[in-house]
Design a protein around this nucleic acid. Structure first.
Length: 229
DNA sequence: GCGACAG
DNA sequence: ATCTTGTCGC
């Protein structure tokens, strides 16, 4: 398996491929969400991808894959842990999405190559990074109202690496950044549009739901009942 | 050296 | 991520 040191080298190489402008279908018809669920006791990981109609948010397709964890959790090397089940789930999808929202950072990453960038470059698809918490960067003066945005500025070079986006009045923001083939402003607009009722976009909420189901299904299916006599 | 650290 | 119900506050 790839070592953490080699993973960092790979990130440094692949980051040059990231496209930070809009290369999207017009109009957008379908959008996917991804999420991963863990089971600490069994060392299992389940990844799910769900495709929604962009306008109605109805579910058009779902695919999940459960497997053993192959890489430790190391902040900054997150994608090497979550990509294997997500890629396999994506491969099984019967509807190809126009773009994808990942549950993690894109450029808002210490080497500017988070999960959303890795997933996007690997699939050559538009991907948005939308994290629940901050990995790096600082922001200030974020208003309380839904739709408020504050720039997320990298500590090292002061670069604009993402947005803190308030999706509900007075509720903690989410962190939006470019994954691949999309601009930060477009990514921010889309995440706000998808967060219709809750803090997180519906894509992420649904993917989380299906990943949880996939993990439970896998565990119950592998529990072979004792041989009846 | 210390703190921070996507899930 | 996970351990985990009711409870404090707007």
């Amino acid at each position: 398996m790839i070592t953490p040191a080699d993973a960092i080298i790979l990130q440094e190489q692949l980051r040059a491929q990231v496209i930070t402008t809009d290369v999207l279908p017009h109009p957008i018809r379908t959008i996917a969400g991804t999420d991963v669920e863990y089971d600490k006791s069994t060392n299992l990981i389940a990844g799910s991808v769900v495709v929604l109609d962009y306008n109605t948010l109805s579910v058009l397709a779902v695919a999940s894959h459960c497997m053993e964890v192959t890489f430790p959790y190391i902040p900054g090397l997150f994608s090497f842990r979550e990509m294997p089940p997500l890629l396999e789930a994506y491969r099984q999808l019967e509807v190809e999405p126009d773009l994808i929202i990942c549950d993690g950072q894109g450029l808002a990453h210490q080497r500017r190559f988070g999960l959303a960038c890795h997933f996007g470059v690997t699939l050559n698809k538009p991907v948005i990074g939308c994290g629940k918490t901050r990995l790096c960067g600082q922001y200030q003066n974020l208003d309380e109202a839904r739709g408020s945005v504050a720039p997320l500025i990298a500590e090292d070079d002061q670069a604009l690496i993402g947005h803190a986006l308030r999706t509900r009045d007075g509720i903690n923001p989410v962190f939006v950044s470019v994954g691949h083939k999309i601009s930060l402003d477009t990514a921010t607009d889309i995440v706000l549009k998808m967060a219709t009722q809750y803090r997180l976009p519906e894509t992420t909420r649904l993917a989380d739901h299906y990943a949880r189901l996939a993990l439970l299904d896998y565990k119950s299916g592998s529990n072979k009942p004792p041989e009846s006599v």
